[in-house]
Amino acid sequence: MKRETIIWTVLFVAGGLFLVVRGTQSDHGLGRQYVKQVRVNPQSATDLRVKFKEAPPTDRQAQLSIPRTVGLWVAAFFTLAILSFLYRDNIFYKIAESVMVGVSAAWYMVTAGFWEAIIPKLLANLAPETIGSWALPDLLKPKPPDPKLLSLVPLVLGIMLLCRLLPRGGWIGRWPLAFIVGVFAGIRMIGFLEADFVSQIRSSIIPLVVMTDAGRVNLWASLRNTGLVFGVLACLAYFFFSVEHRGLVGRLARVGVWYLMITFGASFAFTVMGRIALLAGRITFLFDDWLWLIDPAGKRWGP
C-alpha cells in the first residue's frame, strides 16, 4: 500500500511539474481561454449592452477570461478523474460522480422540465399573454393565442403526481401513472404490430428461387434469399415458448441460436469501431484544448 502511495505521489508531482514547466517555459503556454467583447444588438443605437464571445488567442481584441480558464482546468480535472476509474474507484472519481449526478439531475429539471416543457407547453397554453410578456415574446406576435383550457388536464394529473410527496394520500399519484401506462400501452401495441410485426414479415417476403434475365436460375441470389427466410423461421422457432426445444423444433431452434449469435457478433463489431472514435474525442480535448500540445484546427497558432 505504501509503495503504491509513493508511486502515485511521484506521478502527481511529475504531472504537476510538467504542467508548471509547460505553462512557464514553452512558447505558447497552456490551458487558457480568451474572449472578446461584442454588442448584444450591434444594430441598435440605444441598446449598448455587451457580452463576451469566445475568441482565439491570435485575435487582436482577445482578452484572457478567468472564469473560462478556470472552467477549462475544472473540465480537465473531471476528465482525468473519470478516466482514473479505469484503475480503480478513488476519491477523485467519487467527487466527479457526485458532481455529475447533482449537476445533471438539476440540468434536466431546469431544461427539459421547466424551460422546455412547463413554460412553453403548459403555462403558455393556459396563460399565453402573461407568459408571452414575461419569457416568450414570440407568443405575442401577431397577437397572443386564446388560452387552451384542455391543458388543465395534464396540470391536474401533474398535481396528483405531486401528491406522492405528501405523507398520506400518495396513492392518488397512481392515477396519472395509470393514464400514462394506458395511453402508451394502446399506442405501442398498434405501433409495434404495424412497424415491426407486419412490416418485417412484408420485407422478408422474397422469392426463394431467383431467375436471371436470361431465364436461368441465379444460384447465388437464390441461396442468399433461402438462407435469409430460413433464418427468420429458425429464429422464430427459438422464441417459441410452448414447445420444448427437442426433435425437429429443437434442431431448428439451435440453428436459430446460431443465427442470433452471428447477428450479435455483427452488432458487436459495429460497436467496437464506433467506440474508439469517442475516446479520440476526449484525448483531443486533453491534448489540444487543455495542454495545447497539438493544434489540429490551427485555432491558436494558425495553420
Partner: peptide, 22 residues
Amino acid sequence: DAGKALAAALLIAGCLLATETS
C-alpha cells in the same frame, strides 16, 4: 406463440407466391 405461427405462415405463403412469380 400463435402470433409467431401466424408470422411464419404469412412468410412461407408469401415466399412461395414470390417464388412462383419468379
